[in-house]
Nucleic acid binder design. Structure first.
Length: 325
DNA sequence: CATCGATGTTGAG
DNA sequence: TCAACCTCGATGG
């Protein structure tokens, strides 16, 4: 499932292709029929992400709140000429290559670029983004269990499998936001940093649990947790109140950096400090993208000690018992 | 083809 | 604390 970076990228797609437009809202699956009727025919006025939550603002103070949970996803389809292209903004000049269909794909398996591609395209935005169909009728038939379809004249977004999908008023949105910690994509200034540092360190719980608590910091998930802790050479079991001020500030800065890379590239690249050729190889090969995540039993990339897998907070935790002693 | 597991949260007990 | 949610790629037979 997407961590914070994916949700920001999805919100960006809505901002680009839906905000300012009248939207036909439906629930092909039927489970969101009432909510769809409330929103149908209104203009979308804003789209924003906070951590893993997304909020789409419609006329008259109505919001659609979506959380993808563990297997939710948005499928976008529309005209490529409108710029459905999550990789054009990617950094480092890592351009795409043309595949056998003439569709342009990125330097890795799950991205899309727009050069010379067919007129219509579709892409999935969850943990992966990729071409599903090159050409099809318009609008396309919903595939599978589509909870919500948002349709404009030239773009469509289908939502399936979300944990949360509901219509809220301003107060409802505020109530959700009040439960969330800071998100460095929204504010990476001193105030947000101080809030993170204070909330992280006020608990005696393990720092590995605190980083996953969305009230401490919004947007970190299981991959980024493991990687951030390794990058800090910090033991996941360290009680959060024993994390020094400087360490806590560094954790925040590193998360802000990794999140920015994720939002820009669409990749959970957590080994950004590699040389350029090694970086390219890491991007190309999913298994080589992380320091510890999903590397249990494999030698640590730094000290060759076997990476450990254990449960923490009902999730798999990966770490190096030597580097993170 | 069947089964498993996942980048997550909620709410029952 | 743990099952439910309800999707789909990866894995195994």
């Amino acid at each position: 499932m997407p961590e914070g970076h994916s949700v920001h990228r999805i919100a960006r797609q809505f901002a680009r292709h839906f905000v300012g437009r009248t939207v036909a809202v439906s629930s092909p699956q039927g489970r969101f029929a009432d909510g769809a009727a409330l929103l149908d025919g209104r203009t979308m006025t804003d789209a924003k992400a906070v951590g893993k939550q997304m909020f789409l603002d419609f006329e008259d103070g109505l919001w659609l709140r979506v959380h993808l949970g563990i297997y939710g996803a948005w499928d976008f389809a529309g005209s490529l000429e409108l710029g459905f292209d999550p990789t054009t903004a990617s950094a480092g000049g890592r351009m795409g290559q043309t595949n056998q269909q003439g569709t342009v794909v990125g330097a890795h398996e799950d991205s899309l670029a727009s050069i010379g591609a067919p007129r219509r395209t579709r892409l999935r935005m969850a943990e992966q983004e990729k071409v599903v169909d090159a050409l099809e009728s318009w609008p396309p038939e919903p595939i599978g269990q589509v909870r919500v379809r948002l349709l404009t004249e030239d773009a469509v977004a289908d939502l399936r499998g979300p944990t949360a999908c509901e219509v809220l008023d301003d107060a409802g949105v505020r109530a959700v936001l009040d439960r969330l910690g800071p998100d460095p994509q929204l504010d990476d200034g001193p105030e947000a940093k101080a809030k993170f540092v204070e909330r992280l360190r006020r608990s005696g719980k393990a720092v590995g649990l605190q980083l996953m608590d969305q009230a401490v910091v919004a947007g970190i998930g299981n991959v980024y947790r493991a990687e951030i802790l390794f990058r800090a050479r910090m033991n996941p079991h360290l009680p959060a109140k024993q994390v020094t001020l400087e360490q806590a500030r560094d954790l925040w800065a590193d998360w802000a950096r990794l999140l920015e890379i994720g939002v820009t590239t669409g990749q959970m690249m957590t080994m950004d400090d590699l040389a350029d050729d090694a970086y390219r190889a890491a991007l190309a090969n999913r298994a080589d993208r992380h320091w510890v995540y999903k590397r249990e039993g494999l030698p640590c990339r730094v000290c060759r000690t076997h990476i450990v897998l254990e449960e923490m907070g009902n999730r798999k935790l990966y770490w190096c018992p030597r580097c993170q002693a």
